[in-house]
Write a protein that binds this DNA or RNA. Sequence first.
DNA 1: GACGTCTCTGTTAACGCTAACAAGAACTGG
DNA 2: CCAGTTCTTGTTAGCGTTAACAGAGACGTC
Lengths: 335, 335
Amino acid sequence: MAVHGPAMTDVARLAGVSHQTVSRVLNGHPNVREQTRLRVRAAIAELGYRPNGAARALVTGRSQVIGVVAQNTTLYGPAAMLAALEQTAAEEGFAVSVGSVRNLDHRSISAAVERHLSHRVAGIVVIAPVESAGEALERLPQDVPLVTVDGDPSRPVPLVTVDQVAGARAATQHLLDAGHRTVWHVSGPFDWFDSVGRIDGWREALLAAGVDPPPLMPGDWSAASGYQCGQMLARMPEVTAVFTANDHLALGVLRALHEFGRRVPHDISVVGFDDVPEAAYFIPPLTTVRPDFDAVARASLQMLLTQIESGIGGALRQTIAPALVARGSVAPPQR
Amino acid sequence: MAVHGPAMTDVARLAGVSHQTVSRVLNGHPNVREQTRLRVRAAIAELGYRPNGAARALVTGRSQVIGVVAQNTTLYGPAAMLAALEQTAAEEGFAVSVGSVRNLDHRSISAAVERHLSHRVAGIVVIAPVESAGEALERLPQDVPLVTVDGDPSRPVPLVTVDQVAGARAATQHLLDAGHRTVWHVSGPFDWFDSVGRIDGWREALLAAGVDPPPLMPGDWSAASGYQCGQMLARMPEVTAVFTANDHLALGVLRALHEFGRRVPHDISVVGFDDVPEAAYFIPPLTTVRPDFDAVARASLQMLLTQIESGIGGALRQTIAPALVARGSVAPPQR
DNA sequence: GACGTCTCTGTTAACGCTAACAAGAACTGG
DNA sequence: CCAGTTCTTGTTAGCGTTAACAGAGACGTC
């Protein structure tokens, strides 16, 4: 098997030119006679010639591939990010190579990055929402274009991130505006920056309104942990409004509240985060915060391409504001 | 930027050997003196040498990369498949390059495959659950190791697939066993093989029980379409059991039934398909069918590696049986 | 001790492409 | 019509690796 396809020299022979001319046509070099260009194009088509990316990568030192390092691509957020990234990259003519890792610790990340580097990727996007990833990123080779998505805001690395704080603030404010005295929060894991940002935003909004934040309920993104927190919340009569760090936590909370006979939104209002596609069909439809994954993907790729082309690194930073999506899970408190 | 790292010759010089010896150490060639091997290893470590995958791919004709062609990687099924595939591939030392396509039509698929081929991937996995993909696959170059996941069972292409029919049969049977006279079905789009298989399984189970299948309710995988079908089902008093083609459809149905005051499972039982992680926290917890994505990924990769190594193609076929997960959304019919 | 057989290592030649230079053809201006 | 310029094409030399062959020792056998 593996009959190798035609090479550039085959095309050249058929078109009656040198292989270099074929190369020029392929790369859109200006100084090629129109007639020659057409002959070469025809030969390419006739032979079904396909340029060899490996050879090109070898000689230029970069391939048209972008490496993505991500963890847990079954979670909605990362999966959506990855898909958006891939889509955007394809439009720019880049392929995306995924190196997912089990844990976002120093070792795993370095290993994944190494793998990408050995394939001479043009650049790397790290979806590194976790504390332990930060350290790894600083020790990385300096000469590789790299962008972090949802990474550590305090590190001097090019970063594109959803404005977690603003999103959480909006969610909390939305509940306060509805008339609630305070808002409880079911958070994500503390080592995720997303979680921390959402906690901060929640706290800020409460403090700005002169409210002392109630105790935090720590979750782990899963509906299961949302359910556990929900069981506690359901038993506390003073709770009238809950903001959860993602929609799946919200689902678990809704389920627990339902079991305890607390009606949403009549007795308790709930707001989530992520706007998973099915959030509109929760019982009741979930008011939530929608991050713009496409915008994040576009921004990070743009940043990466700039680095690739200009060679300039620098600690760029870009923040994408999420939008509140109001549905049926929020109402004024019962009196 | 882009200071190129050390090459094999640099390692060779430092270790006082020829570059070929370095290559031998790297590829685990047996005939290398232990002492030499250690010296080379030390030199590699000291220089932080990383083999150049492009050069290797150029000379061997294949890279250690597997191309995956998929559509719609935000849907749970495909996303889970992709993640599992990536995980398994990494264990075998392969990177995964994703070429997602907007539509699974002939043109898009061919283009995606072409892109992969120009990078000289070692093999290609096509997650092609759609009718229109089949044609494209047959016209593909014959010399590339290729495996289809959830593709067309009637085409002579190596295929790994979840046993949709068996899963649907089990779901339907489960409802019949609970005492329901018949089972309604909300399906996925007709051009997905997954849908067709699930419809077949549902129909088979009913016919085997001597029941005339009720009209099919066509959906499109989304909770929104499940909701629409649910609104119709809720108004039909004779409906006591519904099997939906995936969990998100089920979510929409649950929501509609809830709105119409039909209790689940007391008035109507519902069974889904996919076992999304949050299915246990629907209201009520959803009884569903769990396909083993990891097993599918392992099987397809195994099949691909066999082709890569032995060069033998052939129309292999493997089917992975899914398992029913019983939760709270099924009960005997009310009388 | 001569000869074949291993084991280990080095040398050379690709792989398919782009970059750098070279050189011929065509055009300009005086 | 000749020198200077521009356009177009070809030639050559790598990029970093593996494959194929060759050669130098070490070892055993008769």
